[in-house]
Amino acid sequence: MTLLKCATHIVADVDAAVERYSRWLDYKVVEDISVPADLAEAWGAPASAGRRAVVMQPASGSPVFLRFIEGDEVPGYLPIRTYGWAATEICVDDVEAVNARMIESKVFDVIGPPKPLDGFPNVKPMQVRGPDKETVYLTEIRLDDPTSGLPKPRSLIDRPFIMVLACPNLRATMAWMADVLGLEVSGPVAIRYSMISLAFNLPEDSRHELVTIKWRGQVFLEADQYPEGTTKRPAHPGALPPGVAIVSMVHPDFARLEGHWASPPVVRQGPLYGGARVGVLRTPEGALLEVIEGDALAWGE
């Protein structure tokens, strides 16, 4: 089961984003709208009202989405250098085949070729970066074990399954995830994390702490301790920040979230929201977390 529902990326050209994610990742458009003013207000981003927003679904048909919202380029923004949502991790069936496709695409730059994750030999990720500086991990899970907390893809490139959060104080974020959201948080582990080391020009063997965050044993978030030199993410006044701007999740217990809302729940329609109540929280880093009332999504759905 997963609580993850959507990753929202800010892009300069929605049509170009739709083209590359449909052609090279096999996603399809399920909604194409302008951002309603009240939704932009709920995000604390009134300047994003009226901007085009497209929701896309993976070839597997899983109702876990990518959303692309039009936004203006932010001078000085560098990926994997600021606090907040840092990357979207998508599960794939064959990472070597996906790597060949990414190279062929010439629109996604391979910034990390496929290799087993340090300390996790059955997890083989690669990393790419798109034209809007979006960082995407494409990960093959090389085991079929329901107790692993990891998904089994149902298409070559399936759904987002983990969202990565860059933290200034990992333990404060761990406590918030457990106390506010009621999630299971693993103990910190320090691994060789090439994306962070490369971004900060650190030695290749540098280690960085991270935790995984679960719901009933199923991983759907990762929180990383970022090094000295990380900064607050720049943004245009009143607009959504660049990169991964919002993560959306479902939660079955809105009562426990009372008193924590940055924007209180209201009913919202569309493929992402499905007529449920939706509220907005902010993580300790200030990252936007959109919460949709509802039960966890089973792997087979």
Rank of each mutant, 00 (worst) to 15 (best):
K115Q: 10
K115R: 11
P116S: 02
L117Y: 11
D118S: 11
G119V: 04
G119D: 03
P121I: 06
N122H: 14
N122D: 15
N122T: 11
V123M: 14
P125S: 09
P125C: 04
M126K: 08
Q127A: 00
V128Y: 02
R129T: 10
G130P: 08
P131K: 11
K133H: 07
K133L: 06
K133A: 05
K133Q: 06
E134G: 11
E134Y: 03
Y137C: 04
Y137I: 01
L138I: 00
T139N: 03
E140N: 10
R142Y: 01
D144W: 01
D145V: 04
D145I: 06
T147I: 14
T147K: 15
G149I: 05
L150M: 05
P151E: 00
K152W: 01
K152G: 00
K152I: 05
R154A: 01
R154E: 05
R154Y: 02
S155P: 12
L156P: 05
D158G: 03
D158P: 10
D158C: 03
F161G: 02
F161Q: 00
F161Y: 02
I162T: 02
M163K: 11
V164T: 04
L165D: 12
A166W: 07
A166Q: 09
A166F: 11
C167W: 10
C167L: 12
C167E: 14
L170Q: 13
L170F: 11
R171T: 15
R171G: 15
R171V: 15
A172E: 15
A172Y: 10
M174R: 12
A175S: 12
D179I: 15
L181C: 09
L181S: 08
L181R: 09
G182K: 07
L183W: 13
E184N: 13
E184D: 15
V185A: 14
V185K: 12
G187V: 11
P188M: 13
A190C: 12
I191F: 13
R192I: 13
R192M: 13
Y193N: 14
S194V: 06
I196H: 06
I196S: 06
I196M: 10
A199T: 02
F200T: 00
F200G: 10
N201S: 02
P203C: 08
S206H: 14
H208D: 14
H208T: 13
E209R: 10
E209W: 09
L210P: 14
I213Q: 10
K214C: 05
R216A: 09
Q218A: 10
L221Q: 00
L221V: 01
